[in-house]
Design a protein around this nucleic acid. Structure first.
Lengths: 341, 341
DNA sequence: CTGAAAGCGCTAACAC
DNA sequence: GTGTTAGCGCTTTCAG
């Protein structure tokens, strides 16, 4: 267990070279004689030498670590995002520190500060509190590159943003084409970028279609409440919605339950489109039409943004870049022409 | 942005004390005069000083970081486990490095070695490959305390293990009490501890009840296949199962879909118990009876094990401890007495 | 291309 | 109780 740590000195000694040369070999520097390189490599293997990460960090001022803060990985959409990010960063030798902000401003501030403190090489942030002065301040104070993940944060940082407006418009358009006009939008309580933009897209879609915007936007009143009651109420209206656009996992599930409970069928009686693709949406009966975010593309963007800034050594001349990611409307079997009766 | 880094030297200088004293104040050492403490604190505040984490790690040989390797955070059960672990470790000032092993041995080995390399203070591991020599070797080589998360690994490490046998027995017992004997068990493909133990518990339960063990264990053949076809086949048998015990998220979902597709109702025609509690199980119609693991208790155990070893400074005299965690059978509405016809 | 030497910022002995 | 000092293990000038 406690075999004393082998240092680069031991390697250099065994290889009969200087510490400097050993370091060059380890870091794959160009100017090294094949002979030296081989002797060092042999010594490394013989001693089972592994460089000390803390020392490398201290000296080189890079930690090869990226900090990620999402609201909650228990949300499958964030879990997927994390997976994709991990995949890309792994290839470049980075590891990920993950922290859940839980939409709690104090906690978010604390996490951001800790990332700073621990010298992350970069961070990916999705704070729930987009206008909280403390959060903004913490982000602004960051000395490493940051990528904001689908949030409207008034800071000078790169961002990957989903084009919710276009996505929702496409979904509504699809439903309108099928003859629907009474289309409800079921959202989660929190009023962060995704929710705000979806509402915006919803209104824009109806205007674009020359239709009045229906009063059918649902927002769950508390974090623990579900859309179930609201959807039920809507369905009992004299002129009930014939289609639903429902976000996420929890809201979508509640919406579907409420529909089933009213004895209505999808898609014969009610059409449904989910926002965000999950196992659930794919395996539901019927499989659900959804707006899907290209997880891998998103991760690729975020990683590229971070790495290029890292390569630029913090050269502040690069102005902030925003990647606007489009949703794909994945047609499955949960939408049908409106039933006229 | 690039305000030059403030060091403990600057703090000491401003406070008019030595770096040693400054360090003591920062680390909350006992023997410091209130006067010195105050001056240092004031200097820290004035300079907005933040200690350099890499330097602290290098010198103190602790990183205040825990490595977590699960199969896949996209599995909501692991996501919850992570959340709970984060909660406990946060309080103690630790952050978590998360990596997904994806049941790939090479990847798992690489992750474990990286944890070692980066000097994690402790690790929590759930490798999918429990008997892979390389994985075992990597775990054995670890110089920091490890907690094995519900895996049967032949290593000298602490472990948190779920009592699947007792859990499944309780579930089967419940169904037997309701008159069921044709009870199927739907599992995922991978043959790691949870799956093996559940099969064991299944058989034990029938033996304990004095009943023959039915030939109704389903294992999905490939990672991408679903239990759907197998469940469908079973339901079309002349003597179909009247109850299902289905694990996880994916398997459970497929099982329910197959049941619905056959025009059968839960619980009137078929009773269902899930293994693992999720939003899905709670919001399904009807809400599902499940075997639930006390996530928070599990995390508390794991954290306690790790921290106590850390406190013992690697004193190897503590023999490995195993915590056996019991499932709770949460009764909801998916089980009913067997329908006799 | 290689070696020597100077620290990165901090903590932990050890004197005082 | 406080100051001094010696490194932790590594990378990175800077000579040669």
């Amino acid at each position: 267990m406690a075999e004393k740590q082998i240092s680069i000195r031991d390697v250099a000694a065994l290889a009969g070279v200087s510490v400097g040369s050993a370091s060059r070999v380890i870091n794959g520097a160009a100017n090294v004689t094949p002979d030296v390189r081989e002797r060092v490599d042999r010594a490394i293997a013989a001693l089972r030498y592994r460089p000390n990460h803390a020392a490398q960090s201290l000296r080189s001022r890079t930690s090869k670590t990226i900090g990620c803060m999402f609201s909650d990985v228990a949300n499958p959409l964030y879990a997927r995002a994390f997976r994709a990010l991990e995949e890309h960063f792994r290839r470049e030798g980075y590891m990920l520190l993950l922290a859940n902000g839980l939409n709690d401003a104090e906690r978010e501030i604390d996490i951001i500060q800790t990332f700073q403190l621990r010298g992350m090489d970069g961070v990916i942030l999705a704070p729930g509190n987009e206008r909280h002065p403390g959060v903004l301040d913490a982000v602004r104070r960051l000395s490493m590159p940051a990528v904001i993940y689908d949030r409207d944060l008034a800071v000078d940082a790169d961002a990957v943003l989903f084009d919710h407006v276009a996505g929702v418009k496409a979904a509504i358009h699809h439903l309108v084409e099928l003859g629907h006009t009474r289309i409800a939008l079921a959202l989660w309580q929190v009023k962060s970028r995704p929710v705000r933009r979806r509402i915006e897209g919803y209104k824009a879609a109806f205007k674009a279609a020359g239709l009045p915007v229906p009063d059918l936007i649902l927002q769950e009143p508390t974090p623990t409440s579900s859309a179930f009651d609201d959807v039920t109420r809507l369905l009992q209206l004299p002129d009930p919605p014939t289609a639903f656009l429902a976000q996420g996992t929890h809201t979508l599930t509640s919406t579907l339950r409420a529909i089933a409970k009213q004895g209505l069928r999808v898609p014969e009686d009610v059409s449904v489109i989910g926002i965000g693709d999950t196992d659930f949406a794919q395996t539901y009966d019927p499989p659900l039409t959804v707006l899907r975010t290209p997880t891998d593309e998103v991760a690729a963007h975020a990683v590229e943004m971070l790495l290029s800034r890292l390569a630029a050594k913090g050269d502040a001349s690069l102005s902030p870049r925003k990647a606007l990611i489009q949703f794909d409307l994945i047609l499955r079997e949960s939408c049908a022409p409106v039933a006229r009766h």
